[in-house]
């Protein structure tokens, strides 16, 4: 029982990271109908920026995090302006492949900055734990959950009550109608990338807590894609639910798979999200909460 609860706690924490990343995917998808494959690159760049500001320059962790989020947002803004904006009106595949190319660029540069060693950040949580009954919970897991909940709440308020949030919802609903009503769709695109860039950097920081980052860490972000698909690619609540589900399954598999299904091999937990993805898409091609695309000719 303790083991079960403990793996659930770890899974929810991991799921919260996926939730942040999934939001980055969904917000861009909703505004421009493009899957942004550059999220891994943006995430690892954000994580490295925390390392850079915090360790190399020795700035206080919280300020370093803030700066990293800022850098992430600026980089995302530049990507949108330089590479995505010229492609508006072209097939979405082309834009998606461009983001894939940008992801390669970002990851190469960041890998080089990270170097061959594992880089740790000076986060206030470290590997400290507390006990809840028999269950040992890491501080950083709690921080992840709190951060994800906070971000979701803020985004909800933003989309619900702010003027530009309303404009973003309108653009997601119908781009041309929004344009005719005087909404600056370009600003909406830019803002969605900026939000996604900031979220990716925040998620990157959480990925770096615990065991640090190395050149392979960027691929964690791709596991948010199954979460996004699970929830339906255009649904924000769906993304969060999907992310938590994926995180929990990964946590459970981390604990139990080697014991009960040893033939699946070590580290199977790493591919559990993709296996879930296959199963869900076989049953429900548009995810659990997604809107089926209705095509009119």
């Amino acid at each position: 029982m303790t083991r079960l609860l403990q793996s659930l706690a770890a899974g929810v924490g991991q799921g919260s990271i996926y939730a942040l990343l999934a939001l980055a995917f969904v917000i861009i998808y909703k505004s421009m109908r493009v899957v942004n494959f550059a999220v891994p690159g943006m995430m690892i760049l954000g994580a490295y920026m925390v390392v850079y500001f915090g360790n190399v320059l020795g700035i206080n962790f919280w300020i370093a995090l803030l700066l990293a989020i800022l850098v992430g947002a600026v980089v995302a803004f530049l990507i949108e302006r330089l590479a995505i904006r010229p492609m508006i009106g072209k097939p979405v595949f082309a834009i998606a492949i461009i983001t894939l190319g940008i992801d390669v660029l970002l990851r190469v540069v960041t890998s080089d900055l990270i170097g061959t060693n594992i880089r740790n950040i000076r986060d206030p949580w470290g590997l400290k734990t507390f006990n809840l009954g028999d269950v040992v919970i890491q501080h950083r897991r709690v921080a992840m959950v709190v951060a994800a909940a906070l971000v979701c709440g803020l985004l909800f308020l933003f989309f619900r009550y702010s003027r530009i949030g309303l404009a973003m919802r309108a653009t997601a609903f119908d781009q041309e109608a929004a344009l005719t009503l005087g909404i600056s769709v370009g600003t909406v695109f830019a803002l969605s990338w900026v939000i996604a860039g900031g979220l990716s950097a925040l998620a990157g920081m959480f990925v770096a807590t615990g065991s640090g980052i190395d050149q392979q860490s960027a691929f964690v972000a791709l596991k948010a894609l199954p979460a996004v698909i699970l929830g339906g690619i255009d649904s924000i609540p769906g993304a969060v639910v999907g992310a938590l589900t994926v995180g929990i399954f990964e946590g459970l598999s981390n604990t139990y798979q080697i014991q009960y299904l040893p033939f699946l091999g070590q580290n199977f937990a790493q591919v559990v999200p993709y296996v879930i993805l296959f199963i869900v898409l076989l049953v429900r091609p548009y995810g659990l909460f997604g809107t089926p695309e209705i095509e009119r000719v």
Binding site: V35, A96, L225, N267, V271, V275
Partner: peptide
């Protein structure tokens, strides 16, 4: 059953599952 970007994501998953195998 899938179109466009959903397919891209599924095939991405295939690479990771294949890599594991």
């Amino acid at each position: 059953r899938l179109r466009g970007l959903y397919l891209a994501i599924v095939t991405l998953g295939l690479v990771f599952i294949g890599d594991h195998i």
